[in-house]
Structure formats: C-alpha cells, structure tokens
C-alpha cells in the first residue's frame, strides 16, 4: 500500500540523516498540498532537504536565492519586446515550475515576498494585465534564516499563515553527524537522487488525502485545541484556515503511517509544526513552546 511514498521517505532518510520526524512532516506537507517553510541556521541542510524532496518526487524545480534587491518580476517573469516579430513575448520566471525553492525568503523586500505569496495562494500570476496559471502541482519550499540575522525582513503574520507547516531541522545527533562526515569521504559532492514518483502518481496520492476518515471525536479535539488558543491573550488565535490545515495535515500524516483514519496521536504529532508559526510569528522556533503548552493544557478526551 502506497509503497512509492514509503520508498521516497526511505530515500530522504538516507540523504538527511537522523531526522525521520522532520522528513515525515515535510512529506506530510507536500501530500496535503501545503507550502513548507524551513527555518534554521545556515548549513543545517535546509536546501539539501528541499532539493531531495523535489527530485525524489520527480518534480521540476527552480531555485531562487532571495536577496534584498530581488524584484517581483525576477520571480514572475516579464514581457520583452521581440524586434523580429515586433511583439512582446512573455518570459516566464522561476515561479512557473512545480517546485519553487525560495532560499532565504526573508532577505527579500516585502514587495517581492508578497508577489510570491500571491502565487502561493492563488496558484496563478498576473503579469502585464494577463493572468497566467501556474503548473500543477505547485509547491513553495521556502527557507529562512532566524530573524535575528542581519538583513532580514520578517514575513508578516498573514503571509506566514500561507505556509502549512514550518519546520526546523536542528542539529543532527552525534551518530548522524559521524555518518555524515564518513559519507563526505566516500561520495562525491553531487549525488544523483532518482525520481521515485511521477507527477500523475503524486497528484493521485494527493487526491486520496481528503478521503481519509476522521471521526467526530477527533474533530472535537481539534476544536478544543483551536478554541483554547482563542481564549489565551499571550498568543494569536488560530484561524479557521489553520484548523483546516491542521486536519488536512493530520490526514496526510495518517496516510504516511499507512492508516485510513486519523487518530488523536496524529493531531498531536502535526500540531506544533502547523500551529507554532501562527501562534507567535515573532518568536524564534527554538524559544517558543506555545503549541506544546496548548497541547499540555487541552484535555484530550479520545
């Protein structure tokens, strides 16, 4: 059952060592048709993970390094005048790919950030008064440096909300790092990651996710969690979009566990990744534990 996706997971685990839970959450995010935000210090493997994800799933991807002078047109593309045909012709930007890897998204100006975020939400881009649809599937995997780093523009709350899941890889443990260093000696810098899934197959899998079963009791628990966040004054309340995202992510997570129904454990497993960046956008992930607090304080009746 869904062996392809298991294989993808195993392959990713061979590339990013010692982070099975983060890899599962990243896959969850893609299966749930959400965008992924990776937040970490430089050099922790964010870009590697993004690459490996795109390649394993057999998707075309473009990488854009965000800088402070990046313009919206650099992302979306622009029309140039062709002297030979005496016409403007559209040059599609990197956003017209199945996976856009937006590296260091918080280095770009707010204007560029919002151009990308429009594409993320609408799955289309308007250039020169013409609306152009983006390919399907369309993922944005953005990475960002911690906010205390110089030259960063924090993403506003409304835009953070567009990311289904925020992940932080964190340092590998000692064994994983040792293995990493050993691999460095044996393998070349560039490894070829074989594609294990076709685009059609991925879309088919994604379409199975909403059909996962979720009982009223579990939905009740979700509502309890969401409702609890709305009663607290020290965090932002979770929006209905967040609630929908939580349920979708939990369904995808259950799917990855080869189950056709969602358990309360699934909710608890995806909740921090889905909710934390919506609860307290200004806070660094490594300092915050608001989502954990909510989990501790909300009684689970199932």
């Amino acid at each position: 059952m869904h062996t392809e996706i298991q294989l993808v997971e195993q392959q990713l685990n061979r590339i990013i060592l010692g982070k099975p839970q983060q890899i599962r959450l990243a896959l969850t995010c893609l299966l749930a048709e959400g965008h992924l935000l990776l937040e970490d210090l430089p050099g922790m493997g964010k870009t590697t993970l993004a690459h490996a994800l795109a390649e394993s799933l057999g998707l075309s991807y473009r990488r854009v390094q965000f800088t402070s002078d990046l313009l919206p047109a650099d992302l979306t593309g622009f029309s140039i005048f062709d002297a030979r045909s005496q016409q403007f012709s559209f040059q599609p930007g990197p956003v017209f790919s199945q996976v856009l890897l937006a590296d260091e998204i918080n280095r770009a100006s707010p204007k560029t950030q919002s151009a990308l975020l429009e594409a993320m939400e609408e799955h289309q881009v308007s250039v020169d008064g013409e609306t152009r649809p983006l390919p399907a599937p369309f993922f944005v995997i953005a990475t960002q440096n911690p906010l205390f780093h110089s030259g960063t523009n924090a993403l506003p709350e409304s835009q953070l909300d567009r990311f289904l899941i925020r992940l932080s890889l964190g340092f590998p443990d000692r064994d994983a790092e040792l293995q990493l260093l050993q691999q460095d000696a044996s393998a070349s810098q560039h490894r070829i990651v074989p594609a294990l899934l076709s685009t059609e197959r991925l879309i088919a899998l994604q379409q199975q996710i909403p059909r996962q079963q979720i009982s009223d009791e579990v939905l009740g628990y979700v509502l309890d969690l969401i409702g609890h966040s709305r009663k607290r004054s020290d965090m932002l309340p979770l929006s209905p979009r967040a609630a929908k995202g939580l349920v979708r992510a939990a369904k995808a997570y259950a799917f990855l566990q080869q189950r056709s129904f969602v358990t309360a454990d699934d909710i608890q497993a995806v909740f921090p990744a889905v909710a934390e960046h919506r609860l307290q956008p200004r806070q660094q992930q490594q300092y915050a534990g608001l989502a954990q607090q909510l989990l501790l304080e909300t009684p689970c009746l199932v």
Partner: peptide, 8 residues
C-alpha cells in the same frame, strides 16, 4: 493525564 491521548 488529561493531556495524553488514549494511545499515549
């Protein structure tokens, strides 16, 4: 414990 799921 109230916060635990039944499976935990």
């Amino acid at each position: 414990s109230p916060e635990l799921t039944m499976q935990q």
